[in-house]
Write a protein that binds this DNA or RNA. Structure first.
Lengths: 168, 168
DNA sequence: ATGAATGCAAAGGTTTTGCACCCCC
DNA sequence: GGGGGTGCAAAACCTTTGCATTCAT
């Protein structure tokens, strides 16, 4: 979750939420998936999962890769890539969108739907949800004959962080 | 420009439009830009520009690269990449969005603003413009404190091409 | 013990860069 | 003739793959 453009923090996990429970939820889900698919639960994969899933916002695989390498140098890049793939298959992670530089970003799966605004200046990504916009979009899609479907809605705009820069 | 989801063709350049004039417009703009920046107008760059700018819809740089290599084997990949960069700087081309496979797409600059729908099944890209949606989006952005700005709006949805596929 | 998972290194694919040469202005 | 542009090849990067080994079940 990102800082809102106005500078305030949007608290996704207020101080007294049931955070601890959350952090084990994915382990259960992961193991369920692994069992179902006759895959095995291993330490390297769990570590990658841990690091990937505790990230609250969008990350690129390179960032994850570096963090894993830092904390667990013995885990190879190949394993990170393979684990991310598995986590996507398991539905715990999904590709969200491309950053303003064109890199694929991942995000922990979240049941509440949200759209994204990517700042074309600073690259910051903001999540938001707007009923009116959802409605208008649905209508527009329907008018064009598209089937109702999940959508990723990404708006590239300018946040106000850089407002100060004068004429640069 | 793409086939509309309903199967009809949307004709962007009807048979008797002033197509010829269009095809030289970019040369003028390009040369203006080059002059302004003290750059030189050269044949390889012009050829890349020609091929890139005559494409009516979205293309990936790899496709362009292959087409250039095919028509002008003497032009090196490096030149293609460099030319695309220059054309972007000149405002004649711009990165549009990512394809459903995550590759950056380019598009010839077009004054009329449009949004994109990417079909998550077949990858087909459709352009559209919807006033209501634009309005709702502007409001949503404003509410979040974002500065009015150009936006790229990409919706990933399902078109109906694959409706026939039964249970695959 | 069986086969999935891993680490390593090599391969693959795309884009960038260094450099000598070329050619536009 | 000066400096931008080009082609070539090498380098840089990121990701995937093959294979022997390890390890979960």
């Amino acid at each position: 979750m990102q800082t809102l453009p106005c500078g305030r923090k949007k608290q996704k996990n207020p101080p007294h939420s049931s955070k601890k429970q959350e952090s084990t939820t994915w382990k259960i889900a992961l193991n369920e998936y692994l069992k179902k698919e006759n895959l095995r639960s291993t330490l390297p994969r769990e570590r990658v999962a841990e690091i990937a899933l505790q990230r609250k916002s969008h990350f690129e695989i390179q960032t994850l890769l570096r963090e894993v390498q830092l904390k667990f140098p013995e885990i190879s890049p190949a394993t990170v890539y393979r684990s991310v793939k598995t986590l996507c298959d398991a539905g715990l992670l999904h590709e969200t969108l491309q950053s303003h530089t064109g890199v694929t970003l991942y995000e922990a799966h979240d049941d509440e739907h949200h759209d994204h605004i990517v700042c074309i200046d600073c690259g910051e990504i903001f999540e938001f949800h707007d009923e009116n916009l959802e409605g208008a979009q649905e209508k527009a899609i329907a008018k064009l004959g598209f089937e109702e479907a999940k959508h990723k809605h990404v708006i590239y705009a300018k946040c106000m962080y850089k407002k100060r820069s004068p004429t640069t």
